[in-house]
């Protein structure tokens, strides 16, 4: 079983959901992002999702766009992202990578899979790659034993849902709302429905993302999903802080609140 799978098993045994925290690589700097992700692990985030910053992130809302722009303006390269993954994986937490497809094609799909595996990454979440276009990645992820997380959405038909899930390994990512990333005051009604549709076709754990920002929301989502994925709210801790030290403190506070949230008896 993959290391992500182990994390989901462990949480399931504890009767709770896994907390996944997302941070763009190189934001605010390469070293700063390692510090931020390490702080998240220390605060109780179970799995770290490292986003490769991309110039045209169509699935992302303003917070992640801004953080990605800052990382890119700072000159972060794909090779730096691999170094960051290696450093964060050394904390012992599973590290999954979220990436738009072009940076991977440019690096070389097989070469990236090889280097990701060597860095200790568990696999990829691919927001703009659907299984129909993924032949090279299917082969490379098989070759290096990496996980593949494709997205499912409320608009996915039953047939597409089954097809997409069949190509996943590790966990399935359910986009809770029709829309881009960003913390919202309410999480969606569509999410529980989508999760139960996924459960009808797979035993794989299901993570729910897009919109979670508080411990209470994490508790609610953790009540029906196996993984609670938090991005913008965590990133904002660093984005809105006057300096990195203050940002890390805010990150630890929110990380701990979310970790408590997934342990709250909402289920």
């Amino acid at each position: 079983m993959s290391r992500i799978g182990v994390a989901f098993e462990k949480a399931r045994a504890e009767g709770r959901a896994v907390l996944v925290g997302c941070m763009p690589a190189g934001f605010p700097t390469v070293e700063g992002s390692i510090a931020a992700m390490t702080a998240m692990v220390e605060a109780g985030v179970d799995v770290i999702e490292v986003e490769i910053p991309y110039s045209d992130p169509v699935m992302d809302g303003p917070v992640i766009q801004k953080a990605s722009d800052i990382a890119l303006a700072g000159g972060v390269r794909t090779a730096d992202t691999l170094r960051i993954i290696e450093a964060v994986a050394a904390t012992g937490a599973p590290v999954v990578t979220m990436t738009y497809w072009n940076p991977i094609e440019r690096y070389g799909v097989d070469a990236f899979a090889r280097d990701l595996d060597a860095a200790g990454g568990t696999g990829l979440i691919t927001p703009d790659l659907i299984p129909e276009e993924a032949d090279e990645w299917l082969a490379a992820s098989d070759a290096y034993g990496l996980d593949r997380t494709f997205l499912v959405a409320p608009s996915s038909t039953d047939a597409r849902l089954a097809m997409t899930v069949e190509h996943c390994r590790g966990f399935v990512y359910a986009t809770a709302i029709m829309g881009v990333t960003g913390a919202r005051s309410q999480t969606s009604d569509a999410a529980p429905v989508l999760v139960s549709r996924v459960r009808q076709v797979t035993e794989l754990p299901v993570g729910v993302g897009l919109g979670v920002g508080t411990g209470a929301q994490a508790g609610t989502v953790g009540g029906y999903a196996d993984g609670v994925i938090v991005g913008s709210a965590l990133i904002r801790c660093v984005l809105d802080a006057p300096d990195l030290g203050t940002g890390l403190t805010a990150l630890r506070t929110l990380g701990a609140e979310l970790a408590e949230g997934v342990r709250a008896p909402a289920r």
Binding site: D128, I130, E133, L151, S155, S156, R160, T164, T175
Partner: peptide, 11 residues
């Protein structure tokens, strides 16, 4: 081809 979020595939 289509390199898009799954949410758009139905549309």
């Amino acid at each position: 081809g289509r390199f898009v979020p799954e949410a758009l595939v139905a549309a």
